[in-house]
Every structure is written in C-alpha cells, then in structure tokens.
Nucleic acid binder design. Structure first.
Lengths: 202, 202
DNA sequence: CTGCAATTTTGCAGTGACTGCACATTCGGC
DNA sequence: GCCGAATGTGCAGTCACTGCAAAATTGCAG
C-alpha cells in the first residue's frame, strides 16, 4: 500500500511509458532550471530535451511551474493517508512535522529527483510564488485528511485548516530563511519552529 | 505621517493624474472580476474601461493579478511601520493580529476599494494562488520590520520570519475557511485563530 | 506665453505560456 | 490481424507581458 511507485503495474506498457515520459520531463525541467534559471527556460526546451513534442508537455503538466515543483496526485494522496491514520499518541502537529519533513528529505523512492528538487527549491527565490501556489493543493489535501482523522465534517471547524496552514507556513518560513542565507540547518530549524508553535507564539 | 494618501501632494497635476489612473484601473479590474470572474477578464478590457491604452496598464501594474489584489508599496510601508513601533505591552503576535485584521477591514481611507477587494477575495477561490503570491511581499516587509523592532540583524534568527509567516497563514486559513462556506464570521474566526496560536497548537 | 526638458502615454512588434481541435500513432484485448 | 481507446502531435489561436521608439503631456524657466 506504500511501496507501489516503482513496482506497481509494470505489467502495462502504456502505464510504464507514461511514467517514463513524466519522469523525463521532470528531470529535463530540473536540469534546465539548474543550468539557466527558471525564467530563462521555455516549455519547448523542456519537451525537446525529454524527447516529446511541445504539445505533449501540457498533457503531463498544466504549467511550467508544475514540471519543476509540482506535487503528484499520488504523492498528495500518500501524504493525506499518512496524516489520516492516527499513530499511537502523536498529536496532529507532530504528525504534520513528520510528514512535511519527509517531503523535503530525499526518501527511498526516487532519491535523485527529490534531492534535485530540494536543491533548486532552496536556490531559486524566483520560484517562491509557484511554491506557495503549489502549497495550496497540499494544504487542502492535508486539511481534508485531518478532518477525517478528527471525525469532523469538512469545513465545520477552523481547527484542522488552521493547524495544517500553520504547519506548512512554518516549513516555508524555514525554507525562506535558508534562501536568505539564514543560520542553521534546515531540519534543525524545522524542529525548532514546530517546538515554538507547539509551545505558543508571542 | 499616516493621513497622506488623499491630501498628500495634490500640488502636482502629474502626481494626481497618476493616482487617478491607478485607482481607475483598480476599480475597473474589480468591477470586471465581479461581473465575469477573474479568468474571463483581459487586461485590455481593464485598460479600456479605465480609459487608457492596453500598454499603459502595465505601466501601473506588473500583472493582471496585481490590479485586483496588489498591495501598494505605500500600503506595505505603512504596515511595516505599524509593526515596527513597539506599542506599550503588545507582543509581536498581538501587533500582527491588529495590523493584519486592519488590512481586511474597510478602513477610513478608500472604503469602497477595500470593501470591494474584500468581497472579491472571499468570493473567488481561483484567486488563491495570486493571493498567496502577494502575501510573500507582505511577509518579507513585515519580517524586516519585526526584525528591526526586535533589534536583530536581518535573517539572523528564525523567530521574526516564523512569527510573521504563521500570523499570515492564520489569516489566510480563515479566509479559505470562509470561502468554503465555513462557520462563523471572519473577524471572530481570526481572533480565535490567534488565541490558539498564542496558546500553542497541538 | 513660449519653447525646452522630463515624464508619461501609446502603438507596434515580438516572445512565450497555454488551449482546443483534428488527425496520426500506439496499445490492449479479442 | 483488428477494433476501440488512450496517447502523441501539428496547427491555429488567445492572451499576458516586454522592449522600443514616436507622440503627447506636464513642469519649468525665460
């Protein structure tokens, strides 16, 4: 239920090709952004390097940004599922710290792509708008998941959305801090941030 | 020092005309978005309704979004100034609650424009990406201001950025909650959100 | 009030993201 | 091999946004 990103359905050639194309586009986009910066990269270039037509690019990603920082529907579901399940005595905030931190850590699956994404994320401040735009989707998915976990109706109370929004904001603040040459390592800062949030801000 | 948005420099005809044009574009944009929705409005239409050429639109706003939800450099400075000054025994978070709430409240200056903006903000979920993009500018300005107030060097510690980011996230969460038909009035929810943040989330 | 300099407006041409559509290609099952 | 479905591709078009240079407007000095 959690290891099916590579092994899953290698049966269908069609499905495999789609995965390959998507990944090729993803890597091409990251490559080019590292080389020339986000603004200087065109969708045509990305498609060309990935070996598909310009039109096909938009069959896979709705925007140039999505090819660089886009979160897959699958990833989204997996995060939501992780938040929904109630791990022994973990508070929602603790679960969120764990899950959001894992999004930045190069995980077992697709290390290269993750590491690449992370480096670009930290190095390109011009991607900030796209990044926060993408966060909206994550926030919505996680909010819905937390509402299910808490057993409240969607939108009934502020609590779930507030918790998720604050947690994401904390991680984002750490990223921005890093971008501006701030002190400390990312993981350590994230831990500190969540501690302060848990203790109450002033 | 705080009442110079209308009275200020009516001396120069040039300056006055610029203000008028900016305002006309702003109102035209809000009008059209209310009528047809953000996506269906073109910059040409906005310019046309405001009585200027299409090219001139981009002399005033860098993007279509900015004409609808853009925060002026002046507004930004005024918020920053408000946060920088240390009001008797107010904690940073309390100051932020006051200032951010005032951004949504139709203030004494330009009531109409503010009220219009607020209505559209709450009614058009499609503007969410643009909204969070705009928030980055606010966050940066307020972070710098808070750092000055706390007497720390820019980017030296996480604290200032974290506090500002969380405060903005809280307000945004309330707005999203409202958009999704959530319960309660906006101001009341904002108050509750800040109380929880101050008390520490779980 | 008149010409001059600075500022602003505008038209034009161009780039690039993104979309709908029709058609070709490929794949999976039979 | 054959057919329906999914996918890839070319084409034409819209629209946001930009740089550039000419035209209009404003401020100012004489």
């Amino acid at each position: 239920m959690s290891t099916d990103l590579l092994t899953d359905e290698s049966c269908g050639l069609r499905e495999r090709k789609k995965r390959e194309t998507r990944r090729a586009l993803n890597l091409a986009a990251l490559d080019l952004v590292e080389e020339k910066g986000f603004a200087a990269v065109t969708t045509e270039e990305i498609a060309s390097r990935a070996g598909v037509s310009a039109r096909t690019f938009f069959n896979y990603f709705p925007s140039k940004e999505a090819a660089v920082i886009g979160t897959t529907a699958e990833e989204l579901e997996s995060y939501a599922a992780a938040l929904e399940e109630d791990v022994h005595g973990e508070t929602p905030l603790e679960s969120l710290r764990r899950i959001l931190a894992s999004m930045l850590a190069p995980s077992s699956i697709d290390k290269e792509l993750r590491a690449r994404r992370r480096r670009i994320l930290l190095g390109e401040p011009s991607l900030a708008p796209a990044l926060v735009g993408n966060n909206i989707r994550i926030e919505n998915a996680l909010t819905a998941a937390l509402e299910r976990r808490l057993g409240v109706r969607p939108g009934a109370s502020l609590e779930a959305r507030l918790t998720v929004a604050v947690a994401i904001a904390a991680v984002r603040a750490c990223i921005e801090h890093q971008q501006n040459g701030g002190s400390g390592r990312l993981e350590r800062n994230i831990d500190q941030a969540f501690e302060r949030i848990g203790a109450g801000l002033r």
